[in-house]
Write a protein that binds this DNA or RNA. Structure first.
Lengths: 140, 140
DNA sequence: ATAAACCTTAGAGTTAACTCTAGGTCAAGC
DNA sequence: GCTTGACCTAGAGTTAACTCTAAGGTTTAT
């Protein structure tokens, strides 16, 4: 079976070798086998596992919690419920992050328009003037 | 004009007083005035500014870059272009984060289904079996 | 066969963003 | 007048997630 070195895996996943060794130290990839001389030999399935780890990380999960999941995986079918619950919870937090991001986006887009108008006018005062004008009844 | 104490502002924005003082130390809120005895007096507009800061933070901008923006604001109309460019760039990075999150969500949803099926079957092997069956031509 | 380019570990260092402590001031209520 | 609680500063401590260094072993290409 074909295997990959830590450097190859790092390049493929856009990680540093330091990061992968750090993950190993933290117990995220206990299943990676070694050559007789101690060199890590990554299988395709190990790379797939690292991709799942990256996904969990992207969802905001801290490394220690990812380790819990990895431990559960090693324990087999007895932990299926925990793992299911974990992914359902992840789904909820990612949904929350998305709605948070949408709110952030709204404010940013509003600011883009604000500065576009100000740039066109050559001054930020345009917005103050607008508000003053708008606040005087019958001003137009 | 009504003002608010750091404790009131912290409660309203769901921050700690430590965090707000830290922001002040980092130069994010140089416009907040003080009483004669040195107590911070937050105006409504200061709270609005903190909301913008929170928005930039939520967009992933580091505190030092937020400080650049605050400095630009103090410099007036000469920096309108920089500020416009900054928000346009923010918009792009938030869009990138959203598409990243969508990809993450897809993987997580896939995993939810995976574990749901496994739970129903009582074993994760169901997925291995499925693949083996699917790989044998004429097996159904 | 030897140099270059990998790999290994243990452990120290870095960075960002808080978070807290110590020691003090101040304003309000009893 | 004195206690209580909220404010102040300077600076130390924390945490997560890397990131790197030192010292050495291994593999590969000429």
């Amino acid at each position: 079976m074909k295997t990959y070195s830590i450097g190859e895996v790092a390049k493929e996943l856009n990680l540093t070798v330091y990061t992968i060794r750090y993950y190993d130290k933290e117990g995220l990839i206990p299943f990676v086998e070694r050559s007789e001389s101690g060199v890590r030999l990554f299988k395709e399935s190990d790379i797939a596992a690292l991709n799942v780890i990256e996904c969990l990380k992207a969802s905001g999960m801290p490394i220690k919690e990812i380790k819990n999941f990895i431990d559960w995986c090693a324990e087999g079918d007895a932990t299926l419920q925990q793992r299911y619950d974990m992914f359902m919870e992840r789904k909820a937090t990612v949904e929350a992050q998305m709605s948070e991001l949408r709110k952030t986006m709204e404010v940013i887009e509003h600011k883009c328009l604000y500065y576009q108008t100000a740039l066109e006018a050559g001054t930020e005062d345009i917005h103050k003037q607008e508000n003053i004008a708008a606040s005087i009844p019958g001003s137009r």
